[in-house]
Amino acid sequence: MHYLIKTSILMLLVILVLLSAAPFTNAQSQQFSEEKLAQSLERFHKADLNKNGKLTVEEIQQFRQSRQRNRRRAAAVRATQAKDANLNETLSRMNAQFNNVEVELLEWPSELHEKLGKMTKFALVTWPVEKVEGKLPLLINLHGGGQRWFDFDFQRQLEIAAQMGMKRGFDLAELVGKGLITLDPNTAERWSADSLDMMLDYVLETFPEIDEDRVYVMGYSAGGGATWRWINQSSDRFAAAAPCGFTGGSANDDAKKLANLPIWTMAGSEDGKNPAGIRKMVERLSAAGNVNVKHTEFEGADHREGGRAVFETAELVDWMLGFSK
């Protein structure tokens, strides 16, 4: 009898251990399915540490960590371990969905942040997982949103974006799987071209990995308007631009200043006044001598659907990368 009791207790303990481990195993299997591991092996043969032709969850995690450790980075802007644990957790969930890129938090130094208006102290910088030789192009994406959106903190914005399928630069980088860096700054008010110029100065001075002749900018909605204002002020800083989903600027804008800047605009056909305004903007740019201006209209798409379509257009990145200053 005593033996049976001891055996029963032992079996109960084993069952409890297995049950406690189950959620972790299920979570891992969701993040790293067999199909995903096989795809990762095709891209990154070096991740197969034991050279058996198969990847394990542990191997791919070690590979990602080694990539992060080995990536040359200026110490002043080394990716921050945010004090906010929830923000780190959100970032981990985002990265678990990506194969081609790693998204990291970038914290602006206090001295710089004080000069950036209402830009938040954190930005998101995305690096290719696969090592690329030489300098890399930089794609800056400016998000949209109004006051109601700005009132949310950065963490809440990322959660809402994930729930609603709102895309940013890092999503486009993952989609195309190219060797480029993307930067998604964040603001709590209307974007300022002066603040963005100061931000870009700092980024180019601090990240020697970036090819200054291949800097690109894009944005949708309010981010599209901000892209338009920024290139009007500092067109010489960019190799190409994509201001999308906004009103199309003003007839008073000096289109001749942008005659040599490749520009691709996009909008949903059912996005209020935006598609007509953008078509007129394209006409003004063409009349000013811009031979590298183009426009895409997504048939039947409203404002939100047009935004998703922009960030699903992989050809946009290929087109941009074809230009250099």
Rank of each mutant, 00 (worst) to 15 (best):
K46L: 15
H113D: 08
Y216M: 09
E59W: 06
A27R: 06
E107V: 12
C244I: 04
A38K: 02
E212W: 08
E212G: 15
R78Q: 13
P208Q: 05
T296L: 13
K167Q: 12
A85I: 13
M1P: 04
Q31E: 11
Q233V: 15
E107T: 14
G177S: 07
G146L: 13
L10M: 15
M11S: 12
L196D: 02
W228E: 05
L204K: 00
E305L: 15
K135L: 08
L261V: 12
V132L: 06
F24R: 10
K256C: 04
I9S: 12
K178G: 00
L4H: 08
L87W: 05
E111W: 15
A162G: 09
E189N: 12
E111A: 13
F32R: 02
M199F: 09
C244E: 03
T182H: 04
L55A: 03
Q31Y: 07
K256Q: 10
G219A: 10
E189L: 09
I5R: 02
K46I: 05
E59D: 09
G277K: 12
E312W: 02
N290K: 01
Q28P: 03
Q62R: 14
E212C: 13
L285K: 00
N99S: 11
G224I: 02
I160R: 11
L116K: 01
R148S: 13
H303F: 08
E205Q: 11
D84C: 04
A123R: 06
L180V: 11
L13H: 11
K83C: 14
F323T: 02
N141G: 10
W319T: 09
L18T: 13
E133P: 07
T182D: 08
E305H: 13
A21K: 05
G165S: 09
E270D: 10
D84Q: 09
L18I: 12
G144H: 00
A162Q: 13
K121A: 04
K135A: 06
Q81S: 12
T126F: 02
A222C: 07
F323P: 00
M94A: 06
K273G: 14
R78Y: 07
G225N: 12
F170K: 07
I231Y: 13
K273V: 15
A76H: 06
F63V: 03
V129T: 02
L37T: 00
K294T: 05
L49W: 04
D48V: 02
A287W: 08
H113L: 07
G224S: 12
A239P: 01
Y220P: 03
L183C: 03
G224D: 10
E205F: 06
Q30I: 05
D201G: 12
A85G: 14
I263P: 01
A22I: 06
G145S: 13
